[in-house]
């Protein structure tokens, strides 16, 4: 029996293989889907043409298409190291920060778009760097700095308090359109960054924004940026965070992702 999700995956896979014929769909275990095979592309970008083929494995998550698939290279060409934007443990690509991947994927949540819009650009940049020595469209720094940079880029501002001010709205889930926009241009939020905030707030949970927020604070503190009181979170949110991390610790043995306390120090 094929459930709705299975049907959707099969249908999307048909569209995918019409373009990329070297891929095969497999239901490894009931309701656990994967795509394997060779992915070829012919890309011209910034005046450079690259034609390449990679062996790949795409793992489709249980909550697909709410979450995008995970992808890894299986031919042993890309070293499993963070410098190549590969998570060393599982070997999955760090296509970008989780939020950026979701934002991009949800514009067109299909397997074909995932491959053409996210996977091929990633593989292209790997091949490009091999040939020309640099990343064709840049990269975020690793770790917390990269998270901070990604919000700088997303909001189109660089000043730390302004970035944190906007992110805090998401972390505390307290959007008030009539308040002045934290970016500091004097407008009310609803006439300024409000649209963006309301657009992105559905792509991550409040807890995930909260974690990002704390990562940014930790990074800025460690790099010696003087932060003022405006960055402090409300008591209610801090209490919630404490409960959350305790819960995570307890569940650690059961395979739940643990969020280390270092993030909030």
């Amino acid at each position: 029996m094929d459930n709705g999700r299975g049907k959707l995956i099969r249908k999307q896979f048909d569209d995918l293989t019409r373009i990329h014929s070297g891929l095969e769909l497999s239901e490894d275990f009931p309701n656990r889907w994967a795509i394997r095979g060779n992915l070829s592309f012919d890309v011209t970008y910034a005046g450079k043409n690259i034609n390449d083929t990679f062996s790949i494995l795409i793992s489709i998550p249980k909550d697909y298409p709410q979450s995008p698939p995970a992808i890894q290279e299986t031919g042993g060409r890309i070293p499993r190291a963070i410098d190549y934007h590969i998570l060393p443990d599982a070997g999955n690509f760090c296509l970008s920060t989780p939020l950026r991947v979701r934002l991009k994927f949800q514009k067109n949540p299909t397997l074909l778009y995932f491959v053409n819009g996210l996977v091929i650009p990633f593989l292209f940049s790997f091949s490009y760097k091999k040939l020309y020595g640099n990343m064709p469209y840049g990269e975020f720094s690793h770790g917390r700095l990269g998270i901070f940079e990604s919000y700088q880029e997303l909001f189109g501002i660089t000043e730390p308090h302004a970035v944190l001010g906007l992110l805090k709205i998401l972390a505390e889930d307290c959007y008030r359109g009539h308040l002045p926009c934290p970016c500091g241009n004097g407008e009310r939020i609803r006439h300024c960054h409000g649209r963006l905030i309301r657009e992105i707030c559905i792509y991550q949970s409040q807890d995930e924004f909260l974690l990002d927020y704390l990562q940014c604070i930790t990074y800025l503190n460690k790099s010696g940026v003087n932060l003022d009181k405006s960055v402090l979170l409300s008591k209610k949110v801090m209490k919630h965070w404490k409960r959350l991390t305790q819960g995570f610790d307890k569940n650690k043995k059961r395979g739940t992702e643990s969020v280390k306390n270092e993030n909030i120090e």
């Binding site: 014929s21 060779n38 070829s40 592309f41 760090c94 950026r100 053409n116 650009p121 064709p136 469209y137």
Partner: peptide, 25 residues
């Protein structure tokens, strides 16, 4: 792998627009 008889399929032309920057944990 070499005995796989990898059929030389024509690589499809893909255009890249608004790529996102990779990151690393």
């Amino acid at each position: 792998r070499s005995s796989a008889g990898v059929s030389a399929t024509l690589a499809p032309q893909i255009s890249i627009s608004k790529p996102i920057k990779p990151w690393g944990k």
